[in-house]
Design a protein around this nucleic acid. Structure first.
Lengths: 148, 148
DNA sequence: CGGAAATAATTGCATCTACAAGTATCCCGG
DNA sequence: CCGGGATACTTGTAGATGCAATTATTTCCG
């Protein structure tokens, strides 16, 4: 008895990107009411959870290039949500969230909740949970296979 | 007997985006050997498959904002891979692929194959197929729920 | 016919993303 | 102590993304 053909059709990257774009518009619309981009909210949340953290470490955790992080930080430091302080060495830094940043994160969190709840309702909590599971697994495997 | 708690944890958008970023780096590395960005390859492929097409229609099919498409087209038209010709009205246009563009797409297609095969091998064809299935379904539902 | 509303695409502005190259600093072996 | 290589970020360059506003046309209704 032949096994089913499981060869994936189409481009995984295109599908992932298109899906991410469609999601972006929803989250961004909600977070815009708090004056935040979705990426900025993620960044605030990561810094809040990790505490003062080196840019390199933060970038690794978020799956971003270090150079991307440098640039994403700029408007947020300018807004006074994050600060950069010297690290151990003269070459390293630490990123910390400010009081203003914490307030902004809390504001964003309320908006994010609304957006996430809408997505759960629209797509079905079980399928969203299944997607999370799959994405978490696959992302971890991609990361593990990345060049050190 | 209580049902399992299926409330999704974490942010769907962040997970999708992080995953897409990790994929991007792999596809882009391969497609760079053909002098293409992944997005450009998608665009070439869509125009090839759809034939001469209005920008608005193309944007809808790809899940892009029209304004994004306008800008993504610019370097590709400059490269001579695509051309823009007048449409029915004076306000509409049609995008077509050139011979040069077809050659570039074929070149990209070989590179894409390599990248996609590597992903299938790394993540497992069954899980990739399952992800495609899920993403296709969910993206379609997001699209259906988008404002007309 | 004439103007309001709809349609199609582009532009202004801001941010996100990443590879390659550059700067500054540190560490380690000789 | 010194020089090469590793580390930690930042910059140069280029494209991707989207919202709001704009331009140009068309359509429709009175």
């Amino acid at each position: 008895m032949p096994v089913a053909d499981v060869s994936p059709r189409g481009c995984t990257h295109f599908k992932a990107r298109q899906f991410a774009r469609r999601l972006s518009r929803r989250y961004d619309a909600e977070l815009a009411m708090a004056g935040l981009k979705t990426t900025q909210f993620s960044l605030l949340t990561h810094v809040l959870n990790l505490g003062p953290v080196a840019p390199g470490e933060l970038a690794r955790r978020m799956g971003l290039e270090a150079s991307t992080l440098t640039r994403n930080l700029r408007p947020m430091i300018a807004a006074g949500w994050l600060v950069q302080v010297p690290g151990q060495d003269a070459r390293s830094r630490r990123i910390s969230i400010t009081g203003l940043g914490q307030a902004k994160q809390a504001e964003g969190r309320r908006r994010w909740r609304v957006a996430q709840t809408a997505i759960n309702r629209l797509l079905g909590p079980q399928r969203v949970a299944a997607l999370h599971e799959l994405l978490d697994q696959l992302a971890a495997e991609l990361e593990a296979a990345e060049p050190r």
